[in-house]
């Protein structure tokens, strides 16, 4: 059974309020997304600004409320829960954030930050057990146990990110949603955090939903990759297949746009015209058709379904084969 199963998830934000405050328009940030994550698996999620990937990550842990659809964690639908039941489920599902400076309370010591999770879920029997667990968590993320008394401002970005990871690990989750965890870090530190996440996965059997805009990072760490565009999944396949045999024209353009450090590469870049359309008024038919180099009449009227083109390789395109 999948660890996590998302079915037709929608997150629509109301924007225009007409008479009596009724919403007239919606930002369709996430518009019918379905996927599974197996225990211990890393599913990468890529897409550009406004595609809905961050909203999807937050909706999964209910930092943002889904408008429709379901999120099944070990078979149980967490979108229908509240209170103590939800809190219990939250132990299984944690999140780490993009901004190492904004995601830690500046007035709490490292011990407070990591210990808060233990306290809320009653995971430490007594004071000395708590201190021991915190020390072990810090060690697991490569930080010295003596850092427990320090405040976030005393650390570098990479170290703060490690503290955030320790906080997430405190409750022994099964899946961690990683929302752009390395984008805000110096290049030479990114590799440290990526390696750390991989090591922790191996040691603890963690699953990740790894959200990022950097395709190379996502491909490196993920087993499978999902590509989003304007609130919908346009392609889902093994990481290698996404990079070597992308089936959707948007994925093809995305991959060709990634700057490559090979001085001899003479690749032909696919330059997409224009910008991503507004998620309030998505185009009719396929959301990508206005920018698609191979769009046909059918694409302008009929929304393509996500269909299996090759074994385990899904694309939402009428013309993909």
């Amino acid at each position: 059974m999948s660890l996590l199963s998302v079915k037709n998830l929608k997150v629509h934000f109301p924007v225009k309020h007409g008479l009596f405050g009724r919403a007239e328009e919606f930002v369709k940030a996430v518009d019918g997304v379905s996927f599974d994550i197996a225990p211990g698996e890393t599913l990468g999620l890529v897409g550009e600004s406004g595609c809905g990937k961050t909203t999807l990550g937050r909706a999964m842990v209910r930092l943002v409320e889904p408008t429709a659809g379901s999120v099944l964690l070990d078979g149980v639908d967490i979108t229908r829960m509240n209170g103590a039941m939800l809190r219990a489920q939250r132990q299984k599902l944690q999140m780490i954030f993009q901004d190492p400076y904004g995601s830690l309370n500046p007035r709490m010591t490292v011990e407070d930050v990591v210990g808060e999770a233990l306290d809320i879920h009653g995971l430490a029997e007594n004071k000395s057990a708590r201190a021991k667990q915190i020390a072990e968590l810090l060690k697991a993320v490569g930080l010295d146990a003596s850092y427990a008394q320090r405040y976030p401002h005393e650390f570098s970005g990479g170290q703060r990110q490690r503290i955030g990871i320790a906080r997430a690990l405190a409750v022994e989750p099964k899946l961690i949603v990683c929302d752009e965890p390395v984008s805000a870090l110096d290049v030479s530190v990114q590799a440290q955090i990526i390696n750390l996440l991989q090591d922790l996965q191996q040691q603890r059997g963690l699953a990740y939903l790894f959200i990022a805009h950097d395709l190379a990072v996502v491909e490196h760490i993920s087993r499978r990759v999902m590509v989003m565009y304007l609130g919908k999944v346009v392609e889902l396949a093994d990481a290698k297949a996404i990079v070597h045999e992308p089936k959707h024209p948007y994925t093809q353009a995305l991959i060709s746009a990634v700057p490559v450090v090979d001085p001899d590469s003479k690749r032909q870049r696919i330059i997409l015209p224009g910008d991503v359309p507004s998620p309030i008024h998505p185009p009719p038919g396929c959301p990508f058709h206005p920018r698609c180099p191979i769009a046909e009449d059918r694409c302008r009227v009929e929304i393509p379904a996500l269909r299996e083109i090759a074994a385990g390789h899904f694309a939402a395109c009428h013309l993909a084969k």
């Binding site: 290049v187 590799a191 070597h244």
Partner: peptide, 24 residues
């Protein structure tokens, strides 16, 4: 060299990145 080695490359195939230890 270390910087180039620590950056993941598309279809680079490395199982593990060679991180530069420490901080800038």
């Amino acid at each position: 060299k270390a910087l180039m080695n620590s950056v993941p490359k598309l279809s680079g195939g490395a199982a593990r990145l060679t991180a530069i230890p420490g901080n800038v």
